[in-house]
Nucleic acid binder design. Sequence first.
DNA 1: GCGACAG
DNA 2: ATCTTGTCGC
Length: 232
Amino acid sequence: MCFYLGKGEQVTLHTWNVTYKEARELQQKLRAMLILTADEVYCDTIAGADVAYNNKQNKCIAACVLYSIKEQKIIETAVAVERITFPYIPGLLSFREAPAVLQAFKKLKGTFQAAMLDGHGFAHPRRLGLASHVALWIGKPTIGCAKSKLIGKFETPPDKAGSWTELHDKGEIIGVVLRTKKNTKPVFISIGNAVSLAQAIVLTLQCTTRYRIPEPIRASHNLLNQHKRIIS
DNA sequence: GCGACAG
DNA sequence: ATCTTGTCGC
């Protein structure tokens, strides 16, 4: 699985055992490839993914699901086990998590129009978080849905489901802080790629039921708890 | 130098 | 993320 950067340059998935410096440089190159002005994406099936780790065994397992927005239910699931090849470093999460996520996505038989990842997308120091990185590899629109902040400043959104405030950094809006449920901490939504922030908010709310976490990610997380033993 | 820091 | 017991609140 390769990805072409142009001018003969290419990056292979298995070359992700890069140095931290190289990882940051790659992010800057990939950042220039993001599609920030996107038309409304037609999306009835959205994918979700999450990863669990076992540092003792040096393994991780990724779970992904396909969620039908119209039927409000999971229509397919898949998991993939991978070796951990990169440490957790704030800002470089995709190098640790994306390989496993991509393997899990490859196992899906059904199609989907967009994906939601458990981390930030554009709301990243170099504007290339996990969701954006994965988007460039799968060639589809993605949304970043994180449970806590990485960077940026914001005002606490009103305590009402559906309300949100902007997440700012260096003079630009990099995402929103969205209240998916009353009396509960908000989540951080940012675009991954090829989708507008406005639609990212709409899609997130369309995937949200009675819980704080949107179904695609919540279901992936639940799926992990059922398969974690595989890597222990 | 100090604080912040997705999963 | 992961390690962990009970506990407070909708």
